[in-house]
């Protein structure tokens, strides 16, 4: 960075000199260091895809690539594996959790951004952050021991009064209601509320304040302003936030493994005992698994990995686009 002789001459002669950004050797080393640190992440994601794929091959060969994704069996002794039921189960649980989480999270985001007095707002942001920091095992335990009893009541009520809707039916009249996809979905919902809340808050905060105020100045109610200005503005971003939550719900492991009565077959009766997901399959079967079964678990993990990757990147793309647009 030191001034070179021509520069000094230029100074003395009072003529303009070249403005150039000098990159010293130290800078070059520093940049390489940072770039290689950044590249670690590339290797991790690339490596995950690659190594899981390699290790999944034996099980996929034994079970057949097509039948792995189109059957619902888990029989390690004969090497017969199929995760169709679990894929469906994963989506069922994630969908239930979205249905519970989205209204709650958007309500929370609106409350924090638009409604709450400053003091309550602080308490609320802390609570949401702390909720996000709670380990999933704590959610799982609490869900299992504390939340099941009241939720079974809710499930029974839903079944009794709303059984016109197919989701709320049971396979038989007195089927057990504990450890169901519904209960798991509700617990997972509480775990994904923070991320949906925070991302949609960010999106809503970018809405030009002048437009919101214009809506109010025209005599609109606060809800009118939210409905006509805020939500249309944030629609895409909120969709992205919901997708992010969906991605989290797909990958949730321990709370699901603790609560659900695990079955490999898909259980369309959401309120009823039994269900499963890919992540809980891995957590439950792994400790006792041997050679081929481990390979099958890795294949299932690869499926989960690709699923969450697509959902997550899609969601990020949407959120980022709205941020740029604003």
């Amino acid at each position: 960075m030191a001034l070179t002789t021509p520069d000094l001459q230029a100074l003395e002669e009072q003529v303009p000199r070249d403005i150039a950004r000098t990159v010293t050797r130290g800078d070059r080393i520093f940049r390489t260091l940072c770039a290689s640190a950044a590249a670690v992440s590339l290797f991790i994601i690339g490596g995950t895809a690659l190594f899981l794929a390699i290790k999944a091959v034996p099980a996929l060969q034994k079970a057949g690539l097509v039948s792995f994704f189109t059957t619902s069996v888990w029989n390690p002794t004969v090497g017969d594996f199929g995760v169709l039921g679990l894929l469906i189960g994963t989506i069922i649980i994630a969908t239930v959790s979205l249905i519970v989480a989205v209204p709650l999270a958007i309500g929370l985001a609106l409350f924090i951004n638009e409604y709450s007095p400053a003091r309550i707002r602080r308490i609320l942001t802390s609570s949401v952050d702390l909720l996000a920091a709670m380990p999933s095992i704590i959610f799982g335990m609490w869900g299992f021991f504390a939340l099941q009893a009241p939720l079974v009541g809710v499930a029974a009520w839903l079944n009794l009064h709303l059984s016109a809707i197919p989701f709320f039916r049971l396979s038989e009249a007195d089927a057990p209601l504990l450890r169901s996809s519904f209960i798991v979905g509700t617990v997972v919902a509480l775990m994904i509320v923070p991320i949906i809340t925070s991302v949609s808050r960010d999106v809503m905060a970018q809405c030009p304040r002048s437009q919101c105020e214009a809506a109010l100045a025209l005599g609109g109610s606060r809800w009118g302003m939210i409905k006509e200005v805020l939500l249309p503005f944030g629609k895409a971003g909120i969709t992205g936030a919901v997708l992010l939550g969906f991605g989290r719900a797909l990958g949730e492991t321990i709370a699901v493994a603790l609560i659900i009565a695990f079955t490999v077959q898909a259980n369309p009766y959401v309120l009823e005992q039994g269900g499963g997901s890919i992540a809980s399959l891995i957590a439950i079967k792994f400790p006792e698994a041997q050679d081929l079964e481990i390979s099958a678990l890795i294949a299932a993990g690869l499926a989960l990995f690709s699923m969450t990757l697509f959902v997550n990147l899609g969601a990020r793309a949407i959120v980022r686009r709205t941020q740029i647009a604003a």
Binding site: L52, L244, G251, A279, L304, F305, T308, L309, N312, L313
Partner: peptide
């Protein structure tokens, strides 16, 4: 972005 959505169990499998 991709890593932040990585299910923790997949990191374990890797």
């Amino acid at each position: 972005d991709a890593m932040s959505g990585l299910p923790s169990i997949v990191a374990g499998l890797f």
